[in-house]
């Protein structure tokens, strides 16, 4: 009985210590952001940095607040711009997922397919998305298809690579067991290969989404009349540094939110993974 109590006490103490650790980390994070913002504000208030170079955090927040309802100077409200960019990334990322995930998995499992596709893939892979713009304009025009393609391109590569690697790393023991059970190669692919590849595949998706969201500025450079990248370009044309930084901030925050959302989904789908404490 006493032993039991001692154990419980020890476990409780451990939980308490862990919570303290987390609180400390959170506090440190908040402090560092606070220091960062203060330094930034100081640089602007004391005019150490000119107003045409950097705008204070307060003005940036103001710009966001005002832009929420104001269409100036680019002709869209902040929300319209967000939705426009979001749409592009959704289409590009969605396509990359639908095409890239099966492709990577199949390439990783079936050697002949791998050998066939590899060379093309390796050539395309290192090309920067901006380099595609001239060709894309001629082939796909300047609408959503063209811009989504740029995004598709940056999201496609990590998804394929990660699902490929993920399935290649499938533990041979699992495959052997399935073989002895009498499963066909196709069924082993589905019941062993694919689930085993999911952790890495998801990691690839998270990277891809980050890439894709970050590429929206380049994609909107192609031609646009709305979007966060467009908003930043217009800010530049009209000398509105506050809008430029506001745009960057919004892009950054939404990117964070998207990653967090995806990781939440990952946590649910992959709930069988070893939980790291």
């Amino acid at each position: 009985m006493e032993e039991r109590n001692k154990l419980e006490a020890a476990a409780g103490k451990l939980r308490f210590e862990r919570r303290r650790e987390r609180q400390k980390a959170l506090l440190l994070g908040i402090i560092s952001i606070f220091i960062f913002l203060t330094v930034w504000q100081m640089l602007c208030t004391l005019h150490i940095v000119g107003e045409n170079v950097l705008v204070s955090p307060i003005k940036v927040i103001q710009a966001i607040w005002i832009k929420a309802g104001d269409t100036r100077p680019d002709g869209n409200t902040l929300l319209q711009n967000i939705l426009s960019s979001f749409r592009l990334v959704l289409i590009g990322f969605g396509l990359a997922l639908v095409i890239g995930l099966p492709l990577g998995l199949l390439m990783g499992w079936y050697r002949p397919l791998d050998k066939f596709i590899r060379p093309i893939f390796e050539i395309i892979r290192p090309l920067p998305p901006i380099a595609w713009i001239p060709i894309v304009i001629v082939i796909l025009g300047i609408g959503t298809a063209a811009k989504s393609f740029i995004i598709f391109f940056t999201t496609f590569v990590p998804i394929v690579i990660n699902s490929y690697t993920g399935i290649r790393e499938t533990n041979q023991v699992y495959i052997n067991f399935a073989k002895t059970c009498g499963y066909s190669n196709w069924r082993i692919f589905r019941t062993v290969g694919i689930p085993s590849a999911m952790p890495l595949a998801f990691a690839g998706m998270v990277i891809a989404l980050g890439n894709g969201w970050g590429t929206l500025v380049a994609a909107e450079m192609l031609a646009s009349n709305s979007g966060l990248g467009y908003m930043i370009f217009m800010g530049r044309s009209y000398g509105r540094i506050d809008i430029i930084i506001a745009g960057m901030l919004v892009i950054g925050l939404i990117g964070l939110a998207l990653t967090a959302a995806l990781e939440l989904i990952e946590g649910y789908v992959l709930k069988w993974r070893i939980k790291e404490k």
């Binding site: 002709g75 713009i133 001239p134 304009i137 001629v138 300047i142 192609l222 031609a223 646009s224 009349n225």
Partner: peptide, 13 residues
């Protein structure tokens, strides 16, 4: 419908 593009790509497009 105003579509923002630089001169050169606009020409090509």
């Amino acid at each position: 419908v105003r579509t923002n593009m630089d001169s050169s790509p606009a020409f090509t497009a």
